[in-house]
Simulated assay, not measured.
Amino acid sequence: MDDLFSDAVAQLLRDLSTPDAVRAMEAGGDHRTLWQAIEQAGFADALVPEAQGGAGLALHEVFGVLSLCGTHALPVPLGETVLARGWLARAGVAAPSGSTVFAEAEAGNGELVCPLVRTGRVADQVLVARGGAVRLLPVATAQALPAGFVLDVALRWPAQAWEAGTPVQGDAKALHLLQAVLYAAQLAGALRAAFDRTLAYANERQQFGRPIGKFQAIQHQLAVMAEHVFAARTAAQLGCRATDLVPEALHVAIAKARTSEAALEVAGMAHAIHGAIGFTAEFDLQLYTRRLHAWRQAAGSESYWHGVAGRRHLDSGEALVLDTIRAATELA
């Protein structure tokens, strides 16, 4: 079921989330056509139980879908909406139509302020965590200002907007785990896309009468990139290992730490092999490496999740870190 689901998503994204389409939407072009195609196909309801009209998949079964969002540099929040609708369904809240993203609020001079809402520029609703509570708020009623990545915004609502929002039961800490595992999966997809394009470029670019991929120094860099890409994918899959929705914190820590670590290394080597051309707006590589840098820090960078993993090890009572890692990665 999950393979069929992922294959269907992949076909749609190959047709509608092309590099040229991504550029157009990042520049402010219409994103509604793409979102409507996704929503009409039912992909956003992958984690919603069948009794509520969804596909009834578990988190580990949608890893392929979440990864594809990175593989195709998807400029609309499909991954966020998949997780948000699954969360809302389990909280007994009917999910509104349109896309939903995540954010954390902070106090701000009588306003409700979310300083960085990932993909908020093209979202319809936001699941806002404030303290230990979570509420669903509409983007249309907020003031939006540019922030971070080109599709990110800072949102400001009047103070009364919080009380007017829809209360959503659930632990805000668990919601943060979902955000982290989402970005880990998307990083895995973007890492693979950056590697594939770099490998193709190395086999096409001629220097001194032969492809640069024939030179040992380039081959070494490609080998190191491949190691990071496939280790990151394995870690991201571990992060999604959950029978229902919320994964175990140590699995998430391993996933996000390893994928964020790989993002820096792979982006750097990809641009080194491409030379100056990789940074240009006309070249596709930057669509993926910009996302690698943005998602690396989203929901906590590798240093944050290394700390989480370290505390989990200390709490486990295991004498060796290796024993903790073995226990966490043991196949069921």
Rank of each mutant, 00 (worst) to 15 (best):
M1R: 11
T18I: 09
M25A: 13
E26N: 15
R32Y: 04
T33Q: 12
L34V: 02
L34Q: 10
W35D: 02
W35S: 07
Q36K: 08
I38F: 02
A44Q: 12
D45I: 01
V48R: 09
A58I: 00
A58H: 04
V62M: 10
F63D: 09
L74C: 14
G79V: 07
E80Q: 14
L88M: 13
A91K: 09
V93M: 12
P96C: 01
S97N: 11
F102S: 01
A107C: 00
G108W: 11
G108N: 13
G110K: 09
G110N: 08
L112P: 00
V113L: 15
V113G: 09
P115R: 14
L116S: 14
T119I: 04
T119K: 11
D124V: 05
V126C: 02
A133R: 11
L136F: 00
L136P: 05
L137S: 10
V139C: 11
A140G: 05
L145I: 02
G148A: 09
L151C: 08
V153M: 03
V153W: 02
R156N: 07
R156W: 06
R156S: 10
P158A: 08
A172R: 05
A174N: 15
H176A: 15
L178H: 04
Q179T: 05
A184Q: 03
A188C: 01
A188K: 00
L191S: 07
L191V: 07
A193G: 07
L199Y: 06
G209Q: 02
K214V: 01
I218S: 05
I218C: 01
Q219P: 00
Q219E: 12
L222C: 02
A223Q: 15
H228G: 03
T234L: 11
A235C: 09
A236T: 04
D244W: 00
V252I: 13
A253P: 01
I254V: 13
I254T: 00
A257M: 13
E261Y: 03
A263I: 08
A267G: 14
A267W: 02
A270G: 09
H271Y: 08
H271C: 05
H271M: 10
G278C: 06
A281M: 09
R290H: 14
H293R: 11
H293D: 06
A298L: 09
S301K: 09
S301E: 12
E302G: 08
W305D: 02
G307T: 05
V308F: 04
G310I: 10
R311K: 13
L314P: 06
D315P: 02
D323Q: 15
I325R: 00
I325P: 09
A328I: 09
E330L: 12
A332H: 13
